[in-house]
Write a protein that binds this DNA or RNA. Structure first.
Lengths: 335, 335
DNA sequence: CTTCGGTAGTGTTACGTATAACTGCCCCCG
DNA sequence: CGGGGGCAGTTATACGTAACACTACCGAAG
């Protein structure tokens, strides 16, 4: 048995009758004016024939970097982060950067080190949500970091990119106020992160400006089932709220189910609003009125910011515009 | 400026007053009986102090492998592949294997090479769906490959792991037959892959055995919207089918929307069945009767098979059991 | 006729790590 | 008292690639 190791650039060189250096020049496209066209073709043919694939590990070692960035997302349970990835991946591809996706396990326990998990020298990290200890480990490593959907101006991120959560919240509140709603309950995600804290703060502030009482808040596990249970509690109150502001579309979908189970119609008896504009927002009946976040743009802008940091250009915090998607779950309050 | 390169094992060695070899022995936990405990502590302290992180590229180069596998999934638009990934990731972690996720861009155009994209030497690939050319490129590279959810016994996969699609299809058909349905239409995914071909073949076979006419088939783009449009066509037929067999939950959700828009109640006027048991199956109202596929198990079994291949153990094709989830979208035919 | 510059290559080295092979050294046994 | 054998380390090397520095040749300019 001939042991069958994968072919190296030296094998290609031997096969083409040139030196290994020439193979490298040709395959890296640095040959113009240094290698004759005939040899170039010979090298390419030999590489193809042997099925040569450059050894990435050796490349990274030599180059002192792998042109690889890591995208850390909290989970893949919904399509939002798939879209973020798609946006980041397209920008990465345009710039010859590899993008590796790491879905951080949501569960408790010692999360495996995302950097070890990449199994390659990383040049930078784009993180959407991370445990504090992982974050500090990263800052210790001195890796360029761009944070998505998290508090601006917080070390150790070199930059942040956020959808305009405050504006989105205001759009929802104004929309409900225009319909005449005054008793608004808040289904709040049971997650301690900036993006949800921002919704709560803006909601409270906005209702206060409008001279309305602070919202009754029900904490909910971030899932359809969690939204269902929290909505059941919220809708059992007297007087019943006429609108539910949900932190997220999953909660809103759960709230719609809860309302229906309690014999209430949406939106005739109670209005429900979501946030994020996930795919499920247009899947459920009626379709959710929600805040549409630019997921692809978020990923793309995040990766552009990371590229800027890698190039040594200073970076600020970016805020992306959002828009209100008015659909079928909002209407005038009953009576 | 001191240039600030990341510290190497040689830096750690200098700092601890030992040789680089000793550092490697200590940090790889191969020191028992070779290095005195005092030195071990000194090395560990030095490593911590300098914030040393081993260079993965150099490690991979030296070891001739990175203990990294690539998981190729078609998209992250739904939660199914997130669950597959979770299952594979947990088995990978147990075995000290890195798992890198590659969502192959669904769009047309030259797909970026998934192997280049990994930016590390790969030891194996677990692929759920792949373009033919990428597959052949891979077979040329001689990488160990395990295929998920695709035709058993097809080169160049060393093994396949599949949910029992045929059994799932039979469960659905039998369930509909028990309710007394005879006119069953098929909403077929507009994707040319084994898993959908298998549904179609089994459905036709089963109806034939039961003495029923072959199903009217409507091709649908694999999305909620696609299901909606296809269902509108299917339900416009006369006589109208009393049940819709949908290749996938997305299509089924779309079918339910279509029925409602046409003034039909589900399941009173028409029964609808899904496939996969995505999260949305229990989100929509009524909840979908569907075939529940063991997504996590699929990923886990796939990675176990890959590990076996890497160890040189021969592998067969594995079929995982499925179960029927009877929910709210099926009932007796009208009249 | 020498020198200069450009073309077409090759030899060599370094990247950081893991480990095989080696070196002392001390202790104990014959 | 000589030498065998563990202990505690070190030295040296290889992994595959990229690119710097070098050589050899050739035509043209001085």
């Amino acid at each position: 048995m001939p042991e069958a190791r994968p072919p190296t650039s030296r094998d290609v060189a031997r096969h083409a009758g040139v030196s290994q250096a020439t193979v490298s020049l040709v395959l890296r496209d640095r040959w113009r004016g240094r290698v004759s066209p005939a040899r170039v073709d010979a090298v390419r043919a030999a590489a193809r024939e042997l099925g040569y694939r450059p050894n990435q590990a050796a490349r990274s070692l030599r180059l002192g970097g792998s042109r690889t960035a890591l995208l850390v997302v909290p989970a893949l349970a919904n399509d939002f982060f798939g879209r973020v990835h798609a946006g980041a991946a397209s920008v990465a591809a345009e710039n010859g950067l590899h993008l590796v996706l790491y879905p951080s396990p949501g569960g408790v326990g010692p999360a495996p080190d995302p950097f070890a998990s990449a199994s390659a020298t990383l040049d930078g990290v784009l993180a959407s949500s991370m445990a504090a200890e992982a974050l500090s480990a990263l800052s210790g490593a001195g890796l360029p970091l761009v944070m998505l959907d998290s508090e601006p101006g917080r070390a150790p991120a070199a930059a942040t990119v956020n959808p305009d959560i405050a504006a989105g919240t205001r759009l929802i509140v104004d929309h409900l106020r225009e319909w005449g709603h005054r008793r608004i309950a808040h289904l709040a995600a049971d997650v301690d992160s900036w993006t949800f804290a921002m919704r709560a703060a803006t909601l409270a502030e906005r209702l206060d400006i409008d001279g309305l009482p602070p919202p009754r808040t029900e904490r909910a596990e971030l899932s359809v089932g969690g939204g269902l249970r929290a909505a059941e509690r919220a809708l059992a109150a007297t007087p019943r709220p006429t609108a539910l502001f949900c932190d997220d579309d999953l909660l809103a979908a759960g709230a719609c189910k809860a309302a229906r189970r309690m014999g209430l119609r949406v939106p005739e008896d109670v209005s429900v609003t979501g946030f994020d504009d996930l795919a499920l927002a247009t899947t459920v009946e009626p379709e959710l009125t929600t805040v549409s976040l630019p997921a692809e743009e978020l990923g793309a802008a995040g990766l552009r910011a990371l590229l800027a940091v890698l190039d040594g250009r200073a970076q600020q915090d970016t805020v992306l515009p959002v828009r209100l998607a008015v659909r079928g779950t909002t209407g005038p309050p009953p009576g």
